[in-house]
């Protein structure tokens, strides 16, 4: 990638890059395939770093991973409801992040879980928190000569997490809004919470104010409604064919409340 710079493009699953190229939206001179790097397909728990997801793991690899099923079932569920089976067998977790589509499903939950990504170039490697990775629609901090090799979810105190893609169909639909939450409960007090929203801003965003509203207060339905309202106010969606700005904001309110309730009472689901 050092040699080709902006003229080159990394090819992982190809479900995004090839369809963009066919539509004339992308015209790299050179595609560099990562497909034969088997080590980047693995999903494992590293005692020192947390759960590591190789960038080339497909969505179905995530859905079927015993490690994720045990630790973060929410991530398996998210992957299982993406696109359709053919795309889930081909498209990769790393690709879903690098393409940086604002409605992508993996970023909100991974941000809620505090994940980071490893970017590697011939000059070395660096770690970037996923919430600092995205800079705009289809834009990230990754340089042209860097390759995203892995996603790391550091060990944490979260007792529950979940994601809901609210789409217009059950399959093959982009998110109208995507709401991910991770909570660390102690009795009925929420000691830590992260709320990440997709499809309602140029990049996935954290709802910081809403998080503060919830922290260290006894959880009631009324409080969750207040948190939902706050999150809706923090979002900045556009109006398009899938929904108006007002509709999206109201759905953020509804699903933030529901997802918090689910993660608080059911764990990582």
């Amino acid at each position: 990638m050092d040699q080709f710079g902006a003229r080159g493009k990394v090819l992982a699953g190809g479900t995004d890059v090839l369809s963009m190229m066919k539509q004339g939206l992308l015209a790299p001179e050179v595609l560099v395939s990562l497909k034969n790097l088997a080590e980047l397909k693995q999903i494992y728990a590293d005692p020192a770093r947390g759960v590591v997801i190789g960038a080339l793991a497909t969505h179905n690899d995530l859905a079927d991973s015993p490690v994720l099923q045990e630790r973060y079932l929410s991530l398996c569920q998210t992957a299982h409801h993406m696109a359709n089976n053919q795309v889930r067998n081909t498209g990769t977790a790393g690709g879903n992040l690098v393409n940086a589509v604002p409605s992508a499903d993996l970023p909100p939950l991974l941000i809620a879980l505090g994940a980071a990504v490893t970017l590697v170039s011939t000059g070395g490697s660096r770690t970037v928190k996923l919430e600092e990775f995205f800079t705009g629609p289809r834009m990230t901090v990754k340089k042209d000569n860097e390759i995203l090799t892995e996603i790391v979810i550091p060990d944490n105190s979260f007792t529950g997490s979940t994601y809901h893609k609210f789409g217009l169909r059950r399959s093959g639909a982009l998110a109208v809004v995507g709401v991910a939450v991770a909570v660390a409960m102690e009795g009925d007090l929420c000691r830590d919470v992260r709320i990440a929203l997709g499809a309602v801003a140029p990049t996935p965003i954290r709802a910081f104010k809403a998080e503060e509203v919830l922290k260290n207060r006894p959880v009631t339905d009324q409080l969750l409604e207040e948190v939902g309202r706050c999150a809706a106010g923090e979002s900045n969606p556009i109006s398009d064919i899938r929904g108006s700005k007002e509709y999206r904001q109201d759905m953020i309110r509804v699903f933030t409340r529901r997802m918090l309730k689910k993660a608080i009472s059911e764990g990582h689901v």
Binding site: L11, G14, T15, N60, Q86, N89
Partner: peptide
């Protein structure tokens, strides 16, 4: 492909 359904329009022959 290796037993899993894929869209053959999005798989390069070399891959």
């Amino acid at each position: 492909m290796d037993g899993k359904p894929v869209n053959s329009c999005l798989v390069l022959a070399v891959e």
